[in-house]
């Protein structure tokens, strides 16, 4: 039950919270926040388990993966936010149109 695994479990907690909000919350900005929190959760799992290295420095490969992940996350968030603004400009409300109202 080392600290690393505990942090990893917290990461899972963040992931689950984010997934719950993504499904339930209707406002698109809330969904984007939820996705960011889920991303942080996965990164926490990745980095925490890297700390299980017995002593000495932790495993650098997950760190590199997480840095790449963070940059990808900010790129995706930027695109999502501009798309959200365009959706609100055209449809007038920050929600997804109902799926069956083609």
């Amino acid at each position: 039950m080392s600290v690393a695994v505990l942090y990893a479990v917290t990461g899972l907690g963040l992931f689950s919270l984010g997934l719950y909000a993504l499904i339930v919350r209707a406002h698109l900005l809330r969904k984007i926040l939820a996705l960011n929190i889920m991303g942080s959760g996965v990164f926490l799992v990745l980095t925490a388990l890297a700390r299980r290295a017995p002593d000495g420095p932790p495993d650098p490969v997950p760190h590199a993966m997480v840095i790449t992940g963070i940059v990808v996350a900010v790129a995706a968030t930027a695109l999502a936010l501009v798309l959200l603004r365009r959706v609100v400009e055209t449809t007038g409300q920050p929600r997804l149109p109902d799926p069956d109202s083609e």
Binding site: L28, L83, L84, V87, L96
Partner: peptide, 8 residues
């Protein structure tokens, strides 16, 4: 509007 909604 439809394209943007679908893309979102």
């Amino acid at each position: 509007a439809a394209a943007l909604g679908g893309a979102m």
